[in-house]
Design a protein around this nucleic acid. Structure first.
Lengths: 339, 339
DNA sequence: GTGAAAGCGCTAACAA
DNA sequence: TTGTTAGCGCTTTCAC
């Protein structure tokens, strides 16, 4: 591949001049510029961005880390990030951690080696270790969706506590009392918050919560949702409604229920956080929707601002509101609908 | 961030020696190695991969270009690629073209600038231009899913022609005669092949095909599927079955049908290519499934082989078999089931 | 076993 | 307006 040197020689100018026309610097005579432009074309010149980054000490790349790239919530988030990044001529590189802390660590390391300008990360769990590595090297990053204790960084999330309350209040209004909650790992902030919202809504209405009705899965994925639901079904007294902490868990829940010959919502109501599938022709779940696209967009915005302002300033903490969307997975419970 | 120079100075050795221990070269005294290792840790040294790439003239990065990152088919493909790449310590960077040729061009350019070692691309359309750019710079790449006329490159796809025949034969067996086909753009090979498969299966059974029953969309996405289906429904004689060329079109189709008060499969049968949602608890569509994961894995395998063998050798052309999966979107048609 | 030095392709003072 | 030069952080040849 042709280098800037080749171009300079052929155009009969110095490499500095070529560099100037490549970067649209002023103070280049129109005639010279044209000549260089011609040679550029003639040689099919493609600048080596790595060499440029090395010299410029900045890559114009931001890295994004998500726990599950097959989850609509994260792909939508990603799209928000990409759009904002694109507006600012930044390249986005993506890592999929699969909810695995060691994968997270590997990706973070690779991204640091590539000297990305900044990162946007949905952290896998509550261990500060991986994030501290980023901080130690003073690379700006923003946390999305999940907080991590002891890490003071920009954060964009949604009001999980309030969202969970919306969902639970809806179930209570439908007449449900025996409500079970399927949570993701305790270590992840969003799941703790959703459980707390659940508990508070129940407390407000003086409805007792059976301890065995709160189940924590190691990962918020459908296989785990399936297993936990089977456990619920094995109880002598079963819940009449299940609140799954995310979309994937809910899918596992419904799978287990169907397999047990139970109809949703006739026999049991099911609710969850987030949409399950962007492609669905008939969204099924009554759920609380987070503004995923906006969360990504804003996260990128904050990161970019930091990149431009030389990383200064206090951490931003942004909390977005959620919305309850009633659909087909919930129905009146045994207590009947309250007025 | 600490550089190799800092490490060398602090360890009292030359940068060459540091480089040697970083790359596990032999001929380093164990004592020296240990000392360097200690300093490496002490300074939290993270090698600059861009500088390394520049010197080594290879980045160990491969780029992947897909048309729609929200489509399960492509995310599954991607996962296959990633797994194989990971085995070989390659970093994958992703571009989402949104079926837009100009986005494709932009990404290809960015990837070339970053000097990726190779690319895996699901091309947007049948224009050679973007791919010729890659070829001109002699960067290895493999085409996946879609072929491009006039481009002789490694290719991994599936037997769309045969897959379409499976689907159509199934519909015919169910007693359907008035079968409509919703295709993606003519310019994309897979859609041409699926239409041809459709036509050949109909011809084999001597069933006439109404020209107005073959509709081409500009993009294979649900919005277009919706529009085309509305067009079908406006005809005086409607089809009794619709063959959507991919999963997203099919979702649009069902949406339109539901909106028109039609039940699938009672009033109309619908089939398509590929699964619609990896997360579904009750896959709905009778469809032909391509081995997406395997396609990605094999594509990466071929690319990596080429990277190692110095790019030599004739182009591989791999065609994988598809599988018909009968589910809930098809039912017997007016002619009744054939024996 | 170890180091000096050249070079990868580019940017950015500084001079002219 | 243009060119010279010194890096950016690393690899690698060659000599010791």
């Amino acid at each position: 591949m042709a280098t800037i040197k080749d171009v300079a020689k052929k155009a009969g100018v110095s490499i500095t001049t070529v560099s100037r026309v490549l970067n649209n610097h002023p103070h280049v005579r129109e005639e010279t510029r044209q000549k260089v432009l011609d040679v550029l074309r003639e040689l099919n010149y493609v600048p080596n961005a790595n060499a440029g980054s090395l010299a410029r000490k900045s890559t114009s790349i931001i890295a994004v880390l998500v726990p599950d790239i097959t989850n609509t919530f994260f792909t939508t988030l990603l799209r928000g990030i990409e759009d904002k990044a694109c507006e600012n001529e930044l390249l986005v590189i993506l890592g999929n951690t699969d909810e695995d802390p060691s994968k997270e660590q590997i990706y973070i390391h690779k991204f640091l080696e590539r000297r990305v300008d900044g990162l946007i990360v949905v952290p896998v769990e509550n261990r500060r270790k991986n994030l501290k590595i980023i901080q130690r090297h003073e690379i700006p990053f923003v946390l999305v969706d999940r907080r991590v204790e002891g890490v003071d960084a920009d954060f964009v999330g949604s009001d999980n506590y309030q969202g969970a309350r919306l969902l639970v209040n809806h179930l209570i209004e439908l007449g449900h009392r025996d409500i079970a909650m399927l949570s993701g790992p305790k270590e992840v902030s969003v799941f703790r918050e959703r459980v707390e919202g659940f508990l508070s809504a129940m407390r407000d209405k003086n409805i007792p919560v059976k301890p065995e009705f709160i189940l924590y899965g190691q990962k918020p994925i459908k296989e785990i949702g399936y297993n936990l639901t089977c456990r619920l079904l094995s109880y002598k007294t079963r819940p009449t409604a299940i609140f799954a902490a995310n979309n994937s868990l809910a899918v596992g829940t419904v799978t287990a229920l169907q397999q047990a010959g139970l109809n949703v919502p006739r026999d049991l109501s099911v609710t969850c956080f987030d949409d399950n599938d962007s492609n669905s022709f008939k969204p099924f779940f009554t759920s609380v929707i987070q503004p995923a696209y906006m969360m990504g967009y804003v996260a990128a915005e904050i990161l970019i601002k930091r990149l431009k302002n030389n990383k200064k300033g206090q951490a931003n903490k942004i909390l977005m509101q959620t919305e309850l969307v009633k659909r087909y997975s919930t129905a009146p419970g045994p207590a009947g609908i309250a007025d």
